[in-house]
């Protein structure tokens, strides 16, 4: 039985400490933590130092972009500072990883706003606990005329609640509010699709061109 923080028989205090720290990372269980710790113990010192310095650099350098709240090394971030981006479109995403996924498509050339979470009644996460006030302040104080806010929250119960909150707050502002299309995924099958997905796929059907 591996107990994080306690050196197991045959192990050492420093290895036990490393196992405990690794075990706190998401998706890393005690067995994986032990495997990684022993791997680190066996790699060359400079490789281990490089890993440690990369972790420290992330914490020292990384900050929120003052405009879009994405994680960046310098504010404003590369996207917000890029004059080639459409400044009349803002895409609202839950997480920096969602921004990366959208950028990978190369299909969107506007700006972003990263919420760093979603409204979650079950976890007591309200509008003030994520970067919603910053979004509304940004939209209220926008110097460039804004045409469209694209809500790209995940199609989950909490993502939809967040989208509804934003839509209600911005209704009447004159800005077009859209959200990503919902429906069947590429490679999916109708037979196993849930009712909500099928309903949305039907209501969002489009003419074949």
């Amino acid at each position: 039985m591996i107990t994080p923080g306690q050196p197991t028989p045959g192990s050492t205090r420093s290895l036990g400490q490393l196992v405990a720290e690794l075990n706190r990372l998401p998706g890393v269980g005690p067995k994986s933590a032990q495997r990684i710790a022993y791997h680190i113990a066996q790699i060359p010192a400079e490789e281990a130092r490089g890993l440690a310095e990369a972790i420290i650099a992330v914490k020292d350098v990384l900050l929120f972009c003052a405009e879009c709240r994405n994680l960046t090394d310098a504010s404003p971030c590369d996207i917000c500072a890029n004059p080639q981006r459409n400044r009349d479109q803002i895409c609202v995403v839950e997480d920096p990883r969602d921004l990366v996924a959208l950028e990978r498509t190369r299909a969107y050339r506007g700006l972003y706003h990263v919420l760093h979470g979603v409204l979650s009644p079950l976890n007591g996460v309200g509008p003030e606990d994520i970067h919603l006030p910053q979004l509304f302040a940004r939209l209220d104080g926008a110097s460039d005329p804004l045409q469209e806010v694209i809500i790209a929250t995940n199609p989950t119960l909490e993502g939809d609640a967040t989208a509804d909150f934003i839509q209600r707050r911005l209704s009447g502002s004159g800005v077009t509010i859209t959200h990503l299309a919902r429906g069947l995924p590429v490679g999916g099958t109708l037979e196993f699709a849930d009712d909500t997905t099928l309903t949305r796929a039907l209501s969002g059907r489009s003419p074949l061109e």
Binding site: P155, P185, G187, T189, F192, A193, D194, T196, T197
Partner: peptide, 10 residues
């Protein structure tokens, strides 16, 4: 996305 259980456990 392609799981037959996708979306069922909201």
């Amino acid at each position: 996305l392609t799981s037959k259980l996708m979306g069922h456990f909201e």
